[in-house]
Amino acid sequence: MDRLIGNFQIPAGSLTVFFIAIMITLGFNDRVIMPLMKKREGRPCFTHLQKMAIGLVLATFGMRAAQCARKRLAVAKANGGLNPLPIRVFFLLPQFLLVGYGNAFMPTGQLDFFITESPTGVKTMRTGLFLGTLSFGFFFSSLRVWIVNKVTGGKNGGWLAKTINQGRLDCFYGLLTILVVGEFEI
């Protein structure tokens, strides 16, 4: 994708800087939304479970990455793999912001849950429990990538091919969307 801003080229690995939406959302939520809702309703506006649900909903909408990947792949095929593609990198910005907003709610809701709902005997372990769930999440994420590579790997490398224009990243994001929606059932 075209990553130029004037003469400066944004490094591809630094696009996650747009997850700054987490800090913006947390600050806005704590300083504006929560006080307004508390004043209006007389209680905090979101329970920890509601925060987790909001995070999942935003993460689901953030999986519009599947549509972005499909569009990028179509442009790559139409342009014969021209590098860089005639798509601005800011095309990805909405999904980074949505996932960032979701991450502002989901982990804070989980931490609130562990702090307020844990039995007295495990109060000292609550942060460890929270970090343990994150660790297991990262582990299973790596496992999911390995499984997808094994199941979809073909002569072109499957969904997560070494060359992005030969893979089907849109299918992988579609799978992630299904898994996030499935979390509502659990």
Rank of each mutant, 00 (worst) to 15 (best):
M1V: 02
D2M: 10
L4K: 07
L4A: 08
N7I: 13
Q9L: 09
P11I: 03
A12V: 12
T16P: 02
F18Q: 01
F19M: 09
I20W: 10
I20T: 06
M23V: 15
I24S: 04
I24D: 04
L26M: 10
N29G: 00
D30G: 10
R31K: 15
R31M: 12
R31E: 13
V32S: 03
L36V: 08
L36P: 02
M37P: 00
M37E: 04
M37Q: 07
R40N: 10
F46Y: 14
F46W: 09
T47F: 05
L49F: 13
L49Y: 12
M52K: 02
I54H: 02
I54D: 05
L56R: 01
T60Q: 03
F61C: 06
F61T: 01
G62Y: 00
A65Y: 01
A66C: 05
Q67D: 14
C68M: 07
A69H: 02
A69T: 01
R70N: 14
R70T: 05
R72S: 04
R72K: 11
K77E: 15
A78R: 12
N79L: 14
G80V: 12
G80L: 10
G81E: 09
G81M: 11
L82F: 10
N83R: 07
P84H: 07
P84L: 05
P86S: 02
I87S: 00
R88P: 01
V89A: 01
F91C: 01
L97A: 03
Y101A: 14
G102K: 00
G102D: 01
A104C: 10
A104F: 03
F105G: 00
F105D: 00
T108L: 10
T108M: 13
G109K: 02
L111I: 08
F113R: 03
I115D: 07
T116H: 14
T116Y: 12
S118N: 06
P119S: 03
T120V: 12
T124Y: 08
M125R: 09
R126L: 04
T127K: 05
G128F: 11
G128E: 06
T133P: 03
S135P: 06
S135R: 09
F139T: 10
S141V: 07
S142T: 06
I147A: 12
V151H: 04
T152A: 12
G153H: 13
G153P: 11
G153L: 09
G154K: 12
N156R: 14
G157S: 08
G158K: 03
A161S: 15
A161R: 04
G167T: 07
G167E: 04
R168F: 09
R168I: 01
R168M: 11
L169H: 05
C171P: 01
G174N: 08
T177C: 12
I178R: 08
E185T: 15
